[in-house]
Write a protein that binds this DNA or RNA. Structure first.
Length: 276
DNA sequence: ACTAGCCCCTGGGAGC
DNA sequence: TGCTCCCAGGGGCTAG
């Protein structure tokens, strides 16, 4: 379940290992993984050099020297790795080959992941990217910006944190961590948040995502870096996955419910609902 | 314009 | 052992 910190971890690893490499072949036997179609890759990827690798929300973006952009979304179980994994060969959905003989494998058990190849003038129109909200770790992400984007929205706090059109990159794990840090219930109506809550929310978003990056992401089942290494941040999670354990703030037993269609962890004591 | 629910997929775990 | 069912959740889509 790669979210912003896990994707950022991968992008940083790719920046250290893939810059200036030249694409020299592409293979994919899985049609729906590759957008718009294999022919575009054969025509436009061959010989292209990687100028930079960046990130937008949970999308990985390769900037190429032929005005094309290679965009990858890992969704739930996607992996990008330099080595073929033992016993997982059958999950390889695409192979990027480079002129130096190296290969980057895209594997994905559940086939939700997607790869796009698009011209730089067209890529922002790609489904999902066009409507993305601001980058929460960008310097221009301010309390005012967050407040203005959210203050008139309806629905629960968690639903709005998960909505990529509000803020880019937050997924289920970090949404729970953020709600816990500001001590507000995930299902609390966003409309009840006051200006001081937005200040806390802004701080919590940046803190939780930054801590995730610091520990190279969360590995609960699927996430690994391009070198196959797991993340460490699961050891530092305060609420996600801790049902039945004690809240670090108040020692109350953490509960699990279903909210926003997701498994949702919260402390019934210190996370207030704002409805009273 | 919103939400709930379904769908895409497969592996892993629980229960019988 | 082996079968069935449920769960994991990012995001697109549709019905209401």
């Amino acid at each position: 379940m790669p979210e912003l910190p896990e994707v950022e971890t991968i992008v940083r690893q790719l920046r250290e290992t893939a810059l200036n490499k030249k694409f020299w072949g592409f293979e994919s036997k899985h049609k729906s993984t590759v957008q718009p179609n294999l022919q575009v890759y054969e025509e436009r990827l061959q010989g292209a050099r990687i100028l930079d690798i960046t990130r937008r929300g949970k999308f990985i973006i390769f900037i190429l020297d032929n005005k094309m952009r290679l965009v990858i979304h890992l969704r739930m179980t996607g992996r990008l790795m330099w080595e073929k994994e033992q016993g997982r060969g059958k999950y390889i959905r695409a192979i990027f080959k480079f002129s130096d003989g190296t290969r980057l494998y895209f594997s994905d058990v559940r086939k939700f992941g997607r790869i796009w190849l698009a011209h730089e003038d067209e890529y922002e129109k790609l489904s999902g990217i066009a409507k993305l909200g601001p980058e929460p770790l960008a310097e221009n992400f301010t309390v005012d910006q967050l407040t203005h984007r959210l203050q008139n929205k309806t629905g629960a706090l968690k639903n709005n944190l998960l909505n990529q059109e509000n803020i880019a990159g937050i997924g289920n794990i970090y949404a729970d961590e953020i709600a816990h840090r500001i001590k507000i219930h995930p299902t609390a109506p966003l409309k009840k948040l006051k200006p001081e809550h937005y200040k806390l929310l802004h701080e919590a978003i940046i803190y939780c995502l930054s801590e995730g990056i610091k520990h190279c992401g969360v590995t609960l089942s699927d996430f690994v870096g391009t070198n196959g290494k797991q993340g460490e941040h699961q050891k530092y999670l305060k609420i996600y996955g801790r049902e039945g354990q004690k809240c670090h703030n108040c020692k109350t037993i953490i509960q699990k419910i279903r909210a926003a269609g997701r498994g949702t962890f919260f402390c019934p004591q210190c996370q207030i609902n704002l409805t009273n």
